[in-house]
Design a protein around this nucleic acid. Structure first.
Lengths: 109, 109
DNA sequence: CTTCACTACTTGGTGATACTAGCTACCAGT
DNA sequence: ACTGGTAGCTAGTATCACCAAGTAGTGAAG
């Protein structure tokens, strides 16, 4: 997309990935692919991997190495309890923001 | 609020301010006050001023200096044509993101 | 008349985040 | 041997909001 999307993703991409992981565990390459399918066509692979390292370091996910038939072993991430709490906070924050924005959009027309 | 909100505001605060200006021209101090009323209690003044400088530099707004009875002269910003186009793009981008997030939230429960 | 409070704008430095642009490595098919 | 798909990693860059402090003007309180 463009610069606007890039900036908007700051702060939300983390929540998006956590939300994906809340459905079921997944590994980086898979998450990137799913994002692309969902319309986030130009999210760089490197971005996702860096984000995964970060949320692991912050203790929001657990990791398990699983061998793959095609290529190097996968690092499968799964949301843990602190991760779920963090995701809840994310939805609250997002809800507040979406409310304000929705209101502003109404006023603007 | 917290770190999540800070990060989420990146990219959206600009749109929020442009949306405020799309209703009618305003100056920095006024915009800050209005944001606080609207629930963005802890947006730093410096942040708003820096943002205004940026959108002026990017040619999205016009500026007019207006004397004030109380304090230094006000710099009144008004949205120009490129600014309105940019705001349109912002709403499109926001709409896309809000859609995806809404869908993800559904799947997650 | 000096201090305080409110109005109004400015500036330098910091931290967090996504992007760019590469790289390593494993496997299958041509 | 080479290509393409799978899978993960890294260094450097740009952008953005925040923090902290400062500059100025006005009016009211002491």
């Amino acid at each position: 997309m463009g610069k606007q999307m890039t900036e908007m993703l700051k702060g939300t991409l983390e929540g998006i990935v956590l939300a994906i992981l809340s459905v079921r565990p997944a590994y980086g390459y898979e998450i990137t692919a799913r994002l692309r399918e969902q319309g986030f066509a130009d999210i760089a692979e490197g971005t996702v991997y860096a984000l995964l390292v970060r949320i692991e370091r912050n203790g929001l996910v657990g990791v398990e190495k699983v061998p793959s038939e095609k290529g190097p072993p996968r690092k499968v991430y799964s949301l843990n309890v602190p991760g779920r709490e963090y995701l809840e906070e994310f939805w609250t924050t997002w809800g507040f923001l979406a409310d304000r924005l929705g209101q502003l959009k109404e006023e603007g027309k």
